[in-house]
Simulated assay, not measured.
Amino acid sequence: MLVKDIMTKAVITITSDTYVLDAERIMEQNRINRLPIVDDGKLVGIVTKNDVLKASPESTTPFNQRQLFYLMSKLTVKEIMKTDVLTISPDTPIEKSVAMAQQKRVGSLPVVEGGRIVGILTTNDVFYKILNPLLGVGEKGKRIIIYRAGKNEEMQRITEFIRKRGLTVKTYWIPPDPTKRDLIVHLDIDDATRVITELRNEGYEVELRDFAA
């Protein structure tokens, strides 16, 4: 899967002469945490909510509220933006992009093609478009955990067990603990009582592992 498959294409941008207070308002109104800064069609920087917070004068400074507001009202994002922006291309593999973001500890990566911003990849894109479908978050059904059943041969037995009963599996998931190899199965059913009982009769240790999605 490539970045272009899940990136946010409708990117909200601002110019470097935008006032910081206006940038803050735009982020609040659109419920976003950062704004790419584009001048003459080119990405020149990025500003985040944290940048705005750091730029705000502390309450301990020797200014009254009116003076503080005046100072902030004259400040532009050009004075606080980050110019060394880590970017990716639309054809970058998702795995590589996530690794880059984790290594640099950033929550978003502007997507640039031909020198122009064409999208942005955020943690929300990864969660909502990859992780949530993988885990079945927000979907109906019941999840059961079958302990120590994450090995290939056990998974094959359980898959056959489920198939014979005409049940539909939405997702399989093995939590990242190699010492346990538990298997979480998301079934397209409203009541998992019967399948849990039958699996226990087969010798498996099974529990309902459901949560409010």
Rank of each mutant, 00 (worst) to 15 (best):
K82L: 05
K82T: 15
T83E: 14
D84A: 14
D84S: 08
V85C: 02
V85R: 10
V85P: 15
V85A: 09
L86V: 06
T87M: 00
T87V: 15
T87P: 01
I88N: 06
I88E: 15
P90F: 04
D91C: 04
D91H: 10
T92F: 00
P93V: 12
P93Y: 11
P93F: 08
I94S: 09
K96C: 02
K96F: 00
K96P: 05
K96I: 08
K96D: 07
V98H: 04
V98T: 13
V98D: 09
M100L: 14
M100V: 13
M100H: 10
A101E: 14
A101Q: 08
A101Y: 04
Q102T: 10
Q103F: 08
Q103I: 07
Q103N: 09
K104H: 14
K104Q: 13
G107N: 09
G107Y: 10
S108D: 07
L109P: 02
V111Y: 03
V111T: 07
V112Y: 07
E113T: 01
E113I: 00
E113P: 00
G114D: 08
G115H: 14
G115T: 12
R116V: 05
R116A: 14
I117V: 08
V118P: 02
G119R: 01
G119T: 02
G119A: 00
G119L: 01
I120S: 01
L121R: 11
L121G: 15
T122I: 12
T122G: 06
T122R: 09
T123S: 09
T123F: 05
T123R: 08
T123Q: 05
T123D: 05
T123C: 00
V126E: 04
F127I: 15
Y128F: 11
Y128C: 01
Y128G: 02
K129P: 01
K129T: 02
I130E: 11
I130V: 15
L131Q: 03
N132K: 09
N132A: 12
N132P: 01
P133F: 13
P133S: 06
P133H: 11
P133I: 14
L134V: 11
L134G: 05
L135K: 13
L135A: 12
L135C: 07
G136N: 11
G136R: 01
G136W: 05
V137W: 00
V137A: 05
G138A: 07
G138R: 14
G138V: 10
G141K: 07
G141N: 02
K142I: 06
K142Y: 05
R143Y: 01
I144L: 00
I145S: 06
I146T: 11
I146H: 03
Y147H: 15
Y147M: 07
A149S: 13
G150R: 13
K151L: 07
K151W: 12
K151S: 13
